[in-house]
Design a protein around this nucleic acid. Structure first.
Lengths: 192, 192
DNA sequence: GCTGGTAGTAGACGGTGTCTACTCATCCTG
DNA sequence: CAGGATGAGTAGACACCGTCTACTACCAGC
């Protein structure tokens, strides 16, 4: 526990750890407060509502994912198409290894909470994707934003359905690599 | 209220209506029981747990979606590629017009509840998709199951992110038609 | 006519999110 | 230096939730 960390930040951190370790059903307002060592009424000073605290934890996840993506891209290098493969892999890894966090990040009921909405926090990541698609896409036919949107949706769907378990059962695969490959090829053409 | 409808079916029906009309936060066990006109302990005779009742409601959604898909396909006709477009449209319409239901259908925490799992109930729909893809796919390169899985994931992602609101904001579009078009073309080649 | 099981009731229990009244320390002002 | 205002956190109440258990009608079969 960092020394001079305001309660606000501590609640976000403790809540995030709780979420990652014990899943979405564990992040009740009272349990977070308990783990943070304060009374159950204390969070209310910083987050008027349980959903606002959850929303802050979800936003934390988006900034973390964006950071991971940026550093992976900086480390891996390669042409735009290869970078998109890297970005996609980071995305799927995040969804698979931090399921609870990922789940929370896309919950509908906390979309508008907090001074910066959840959507807005996800925009830098989408912009990164769009920029790469603009450089990598094979044909000028669909605008880059459309291809990027479709590609993001595809990644998101793979992450979601994979965690859900249906794709394993239906395709018999043990990891989503084939799906990812087919998806990248479909939207961007074959790898160089 | 149908005359001779067992409480079990009535709970599923009333719960489904409640879900469609007032959203996922309204389908508490006690509220469903109240609307069904029974005490809050009554559902327990048929559903040992709240999650099992929710799971049954979700399964009801899957069978309804499958029915819609089948009848739309029978009505529309066309070649396999056109039928896939129809199927995709039905899927996105369902997700957009019955958001709460759709959301519930893919909740992780009620995956294994009930004598028939949620996944299993979704299989006929996926099989339908796979069959159509097997007939329509342009190249033999990725197996039909992989293409079908990637396509389903893409549809699911569009539905999810569209409801989430991020795609609207990022692409500026007012409906997901362009995304759907790009997706179908990417995975299946241009329409005939 | 009694008996046994079935369907549903009613109340308790612990947990949850929210609200409100309160304490207590700290800081600013006179 | 005294005193009041403000901010941070406490503690208890409230209604609601899911689950569990004891109880009561009711109805079929012997």
């Amino acid at each position: 526990m960092q020394a001079d960390e305001g309660l606000r930040d501590r609640l976000i951190r403790v809540g995030g750890e709780l979420l990652d370790n014990e899943g979405p059903s564990a992040v009740s307002l009272r349990e977070i407060a308990r783990r943070a060592g304060v009374s159950h009424g204390a969070p209310r000073r910083y987050f008027p509502t349980h959903l606002e605290l959850l929303s802050a934890i979800a936003r934390d996840g988006f900034t973390d994912l964006t950071t991971r993506a940026n550093s992976a891209l900086a480390e891996a290098g390669g042409n735009p198409r290869a970078q998109l493969a890297t970005l996609a892999q980071v995305y799927l890894d995040f969804a698979a290894t931090r399921r609870g966090r990922y789940e929370l990040m896309f919950r509908h009921d906390l979309l508008e909470s907090g001074h910066l909405g959840l959507r807005d926090t996800s925009l830098p990541l989408f912009r990164l994707l769009t920029d790469l698609v603009a450089q990598a896409r094979p044909a000028p036919e669909p605008p880059a934003q459309v291809t990027a949107g479709a590609l993001w949706a595809n990644l998101h769907g793979i992450a979601q359905l994979w965690n859900w378990g249906s794709l394993t059962l239906a395709t018999g695969a043990t990891d989503p690599a084939a799906l990812l490959d087919a998806t990248l090829t479909a939207h961007l053409g074959p790898a160089a």
